[in-house]
Write a protein that binds this DNA or RNA. Structure first.
Lengths: 112, 112
DNA sequence: GCATTATATTCCTTGACGAGAATATACCTC
DNA sequence: GAGGTATATTCTCGTCAAGGAATATAATGC
């Protein structure tokens, strides 16, 4: 989790991840689109790979880097634990449900 | 967004955020629970505050720090754009919806 | 095998960050 | 206003990470 945050806390790596959202890319392709020198791209990709955020598969001399789902999924699960905090509707709804009409109409918002 | 990642990429700050999930806390309270020296707690809280992740409100000599919703909400919204990547069901559903029954029943799953 | 293309690694320098210790500031009580 | 409590800031030091330049490695085609 922390490694995921660390990997995404660099602006260039963040842009790489954003770019890879549209599909796998070769190293030079990334470098050209983001205006980065090839060595830096490789270095950033290495960090992303060690953080588990990307995966590689060779294609001739090229290396196609693609996003991995797992870290983002874990990030999402972590964030879910804060859901009640940032979604005000839930708080208001919870209060309403609990204080006023507990029995009248249980319009099925399963809390967990 | 990147500032959020940077703030959460430090282990101590991450633990502070996790602790604050249970509600506002004073500085010394945080330090005792997480076994951190007071100055470091203050410094980390400052970073979190500048990143917009926490807010302060004075209570006598104490400063109660509490989580702010907005950055987590933005993080969630950002993650949503990767939803199709890590939730395989959505890909299948998108294909079905687009290829087969575009006009039949638009049961409003807004792609954006 | 050799040239070419594509990518990875190393070395170096610089800047940012975190920890610890000491000190400063703010607020309360009496 | 003196003393105590709670928090913030400063300073220094060591470490680590990022960028640039140069070089090394890998795969391809002839």
């Amino acid at each position: 989790m922390i490694e995921t945050f660390a990997a995404l806390s660099d602006p260039h790596r963040f842009r790489i991840v954003e770019l890879l959202r549209s599909g796998p890319r070769a190293v030079n392709d990334i470098g050209e689109r983001l205006r980065l020198h090839q060595p830096q791209v490789s270095k950033h990709l290495r960090v992303l790979k060690e953080a588990g955020l990307v995966d590689v598969q060779p294609r001739a001399q090229q290396r196609l880097y693609e996003l991995r789902a797992q870290p983002l999924r874990e990030l999402h699960e972590w964030l879910e634990r804060y859901h009640q905090l940032w979604d005000a509707r839930f708080e208001a709804m919870d209060e309403l449900l609990e204080e006023l009409q507990q029995e009248e109409k249980p319009h099925g918002r399963s809390k967990k």
